[in-house]
């Protein structure tokens, strides 16, 4: 284990061994290879360099690379674990793993906390939630009066901010999500369950011995 080396066709920056990635995640080796098919398609959509740029990520999400979206930026930043402005295959698989139906609830809750903690202060603050609300209203072309936005914020913080300090800490978030499990829906991608049927071509590119899968 751990000494498998990819051959030339698989060489790209950050491309880790499928057997090693499968050992770290809920994915099987075949599933990691199927994810590589998806990764190749996304990472070659603008520049074929074996890395996913923000532009390529947005193109895959919206089929339009010019679309700026606060949330897509945020998700991309969480995929960009090494803070290099690009996502390599290993991080792509490890972050998608959090979205696996079998991933732990704790990991999903942690991920959403980081997602909404826009400024990385360790708290989800009222200003951050307001900023996200305004962004979703713009995105959906829905108009709400400022007063209505404040009412939504009041209601949310009344439920979530148990110690009434005006911000949501990690333990408050944990309790809030446990009471409102619908908030974790975005964290589970059923597609990941049968990724090998979505990308069957992985079989033709597989370089791992069948015994290892």
């Amino acid at each position: 284990m751990g000494c498998f080396h990819s051959t030339a066709s698989r060489q790209c920056p950050g491309h880790e061994d499928p057997v090693f990635l499968a050992s770290q995640t809920a994915f099987s080796v075949s599933e990691v290879e199927a994810l590589f098919e998806l990764f190749k398609s996304i990472s070659s959509s603008v520049i074929d360099d074996g890395l996913i740029s923000k532009e390529e990520f947005q193109l895959a999400l919206f089929k339009n690379k010019k679309k700026e979206n606060l949330f897509a930026n945020r998700i991309f930043d969480l995929f960009d674990v090494k803070r290099k402005g690009v996502v390599d295959f290993g991080d792509f698989v490890r972050v998608l793993n959090v979205f696996h139906p079998n991933a732990s609830q704790e990991d999903k809750i942690d991920f959403t906390f980081k997602l909404y903690d826009l400024d990385g202060t360790g708290y989800i603050e009222r200003d951050e939630v307001r900023q996200m609300l305004i962004a979703i209203l713009c995105e959906s072309e829905l108009k709400l009066a400022d007063e209505t936005i404040e009412q939504i914020l009041d209601k949310t913080f009344k439920e979530a901010d148990v110690n009434l300090d005006g911000k949501i800490d990690k333990s408050e978030w944990h309790q809030f999500v446990t009471k409102n499990p619908s908030l974790l829906k975005i964290m589970t991608l059923q597609y990941l369950r049968d990724i090998t049927t979505t990308f069957p071509s992985f079989v033709f590119h597989s370089e791992v011995d069948e015994m290892a899968t």
Binding site: L38, S41, N69, R74, N180, F199
Partner: peptide, 25 residues
């Protein structure tokens, strides 16, 4: 009615948070 929802249910409606579309290749 939006005021009956909590802020995060609204936020989660963003297409930017719904990664399912990554799989529509």
């Amino acid at each position: 009615k939006p005021t009956a929802m909590n802020a995060f249910d609204l936020i989660n409606m963003s297409k930017g948070l719904n990664l399912g579309s990554l799989f529509d290749t």
